[in-house]
Simulated scan of single mutants.
Amino acid sequence: MRRFRITVEGVAYEVSVEELDAPAAHPAPSPSSYPVASAAPVTGTHVPPPPAPRVEARAAAPGDVVSPLAGVVVSVAVTVGTRVEAGQPLLVLEAMKMQTSVAAPRAATVAAVAVAAGASVQEGQVLMTLS
């Protein structure tokens, strides 16, 4: 057994770890020989990150580009009035640490952008409208 001190968000924890694949050089001391330690007190105040912008969902209409999955908008590559070609990247979504590019389904002009970077979106939610 080896003892370690791990600090997570300013709180220190003492843990014992047993090495399963290591050769036994010394007999392991009994658990009763270790002092019982409690978690260290929090040394500062934890400030949570600000919430992501909330975007209201609406039903899709013709010309709408919808989210193929639930995730977070990483970046938006176009603005209202931008002329796009079929297959051109419109925005990037991230879900489970994987990034997915959402491309224009056809050549068109961006009429409206319904999301911004940092927004959480659901599958099927309208991201932007092309005309």
Rank of each mutant, 00 (worst) to 15 (best):
A61D: 12
A61G: 12
A61S: 13
A61P: 01
P62L: 01
P62T: 05
P62G: 08
G63W: 00
V65N: 03
S67L: 10
S67K: 04
P68D: 10
L69H: 08
L69S: 05
L69W: 01
L69I: 13
L69N: 05
G71P: 01
G71C: 02
G71Y: 02
V72M: 14
V72I: 14
V74P: 02
V76E: 09
A77N: 12
V78G: 12
V78F: 10
T79S: 14
T79K: 12
T79E: 15
V80Y: 03
V80N: 01
G81T: 05
G81L: 10
T82I: 01
T82F: 04
T82W: 03
R83F: 09
R83S: 13
R83A: 14
V84W: 04
V84L: 08
V84C: 04
E85C: 07
A86F: 01
A86W: 03
G87C: 12
Q88H: 14
Q88W: 11
P89C: 05
P89Y: 04
V92I: 13
L93Q: 06
E94W: 07
A95V: 13
M96C: 11
K97V: 04
M98G: 05
M98K: 06
M98V: 10
Q99M: 06
Q99E: 15
T100F: 13
V102N: 00
A103L: 14
A103I: 11
A103C: 12
A104K: 08
A104N: 06
P105N: 08
R106T: 09
R106E: 14
A107Q: 14
A107S: 15
A107T: 15
A107L: 09
T109E: 14
T109V: 15
T109M: 07
T109R: 13
V110F: 07
V110K: 00
A111R: 15
A111Y: 15
A111V: 13
A112Q: 11
A112G: 01
